[in-house]
Amino acid sequence: MSATHRFCALESLALGDPLAGSAAHAERNLLLSWPRAKWQRSLRQASDMSDAVMTRLEAIAEAGRRVNLIHRRDQPSERHCLYLMPENRRFEVTREELPVFLDALGRDEPLTSWEASPPAGPLLLCCTHGKKDKCCAKFGYATYKALDAAVAERALPFEVWESTHLGGCRLAASAVVFPALRKYGRINEEDVLPLLESEIAGRPYLPCYRGDSRLSPMQQCAQVAAMEWLAARGIHGNVSVEQPSGEAASHWRLEVDWRSTNASGRLAVSCGPRMLRRYDTCADLTEAPPSASQVWVATQVEAIEMAKPPS
């Protein structure tokens, strides 16, 4: 089969490439609305973007804030909606004023003259960046439409946007929820409503959850395995993953503390490295052989402490 008829997302799934451990993402983000038809391959450039705007966006990215372009059909093309995350601030800026706004942001000056009311609920960004990867066009756009329709039909408290590259093209359809910064992958139509319901409840939707981006890939693996172990026992709560200990040639043991409304405990999760030969993007499919990548797989979860509060 030629590379034009292959999709990295389908090959990743067939290979058993795990979702857990793939959630790397910057905590500080600038989201800028821009018509999708003008997006370029770069996650923060558009074909009709002025040099002044591009230069300022590059400077903001170099200073440590990730910049993504976002799109929604009802957003006017010459008036931009911008979000700062995790601050959860929203701004409305005209195309003409945009360089001035970005200058003020870069210099950490007050932005109050552009500030609008904050989002009424979580932002849900779904990658549809077809110029970056064809999987994001094929699988991402279908998932975006399903998410947007479900939110509209049920009047759910989400703002759903299309987005440029979110990382992990091979895991399309991929999405991220702000300000919680939960990353998801391989979202199918049957996942849409359960994912939204889980997010409303303030917890990740585990079948598509990639992990906490503030943790290392190995810790994300342990986190997801612990949450799945707890969910199988009807327990939902907060988990905290400690630094790994007991490093060995074949596995690492991590301890995970958890707390629900009526109980708490500690789990020991063993995670082992696994080498895969995979294609990270559809553009890589023309290369032979695929590149070697290390992933993490949970091999054992055991309870080492459990307690309930006194009645």
Rank of each mutant, 00 (worst) to 15 (best):
S77M: 09
R79G: 06
W161M: 02
A288G: 03
A180S: 12
S50P: 07
P118C: 09
A175G: 11
C282P: 07
E97V: 11
S216Y: 05
P194W: 05
V93S: 08
E115Y: 04
I70G: 10
E189W: 09
S264G: 14
R90Y: 06
L193R: 13
L82P: 12
H25D: 15
G130W: 05
A288V: 11
H129E: 07
Q219E: 10
T286W: 03
F7V: 15
S250C: 02
D280T: 07
P310H: 08
A146I: 13
E189G: 10
V151L: 06
A59K: 01
L171A: 08
S264E: 10
E153F: 06
G237M: 08
Q223M: 13
P273T: 13
V177S: 10
C136N: 10
V241W: 00
R66V: 01
A142C: 07
E305D: 09
F158Y: 03
E305S: 09
D212A: 09
R79C: 09
L267W: 00
R186D: 06
A26S: 15
E97R: 13
L82Y: 11
S117V: 10
F91C: 09
S163L: 00
A104I: 12
E115H: 05
R36V: 00
S270Q: 10
S47P: 00
P290A: 03
G202A: 09
R154Q: 02
R65M: 14
A283P: 01
D48F: 00
E162R: 13
K134Y: 05
